[in-house]
Computed example of a mutant assay.
Amino acid sequence: MAEKRKINAGLKLALELGPIVAFFVAYVRLRDRTFTIAGTEYEGFVLATAGFIPLLLITTAILWVLTRHVSKMQIATAVLVVVFGGLTVWLNDERFFKMKPTAIYTLFAAVLGVGLLRGKSYLQYVLDEAVPLERAGWMILTRRLMLFFVGLAVLNEVIWRTMSTDMWVNFKTFGLTVAIFAFFMAQGRLFKRYGLEDGKRDG
């Protein structure tokens, strides 16, 4: 098994968020245009989606080459992007790509829920090195994150079904990122109470 390698945090963030930002830029530039390819008309949203899929796969591959590690969450996300993004392009129907965040967050919530039912925190396996916590802290954080993912899945369904594509793209690009950041910032008291220093609490 290859040993994990550390890379610059800025580079890692750029590789993880780059495809999302590129999708947003492509959508803004192409949203009012229609393209005819092989006799079929495609809206700008579909073409932006078509570009997002390989870009995400490329940046994920680069992350693996540089770090020799890709999390299960990143792999699951890439698979769902290929499936739902591919359906969007193949069927020329933007609804499939809009459903993708719902599928991703529902899957994550289900996985965390199964772990909780087994008395385990699967989240700990993913973040333990970055956020060392006592077991009780991991269980609380996992329960909160599971409910948070359920909320995001429901919110995504409401937005894409009732609002404009522009609103959904803004929500996907900025809203989800800000919401996840805000969620972890809001866990400050939990991190302080259950956090471990140097992986081990004194006493």
Rank of each mutant, 00 (worst) to 15 (best):
D166W: 01
F191A: 07
V158D: 08
M185V: 14
K192R: 14
G151P: 05
F97S: 12
A153T: 08
T106S: 14
L133M: 04
R189D: 14
W138M: 01
E94W: 07
K192S: 15
W160S: 01
L152N: 12
Y105N: 15
K120W: 02
L152A: 12
A130N: 10
T106D: 00
F184G: 02
D93F: 01
V169D: 04
L133K: 02
M99Y: 15
W90C: 13
F181T: 13
V154G: 06
L107D: 09
E129Q: 09
T173P: 03
Y105W: 02
I180C: 14
A153M: 07
F108N: 07
I159T: 04
D128R: 09
T177F: 15
N92C: 00
R144H: 13
M185L: 14
K172F: 09
E134P: 01
L155S: 13
R135F: 13
F191T: 08
T102L: 11
L155A: 15
R118L: 11
F96G: 03
N170H: 11
V131D: 06
M167W: 11
L141N: 01
F191M: 11
F174A: 10
A179R: 01
L123P: 00
I180N: 15
P101E: 00
N170R: 10
T173G: 06
W138P: 03
L91T: 10
Y125I: 12
T142P: 03
L127V: 08
S164A: 09
R144L: 09
V158E: 06
T162G: 04
V131W: 02
E157P: 13
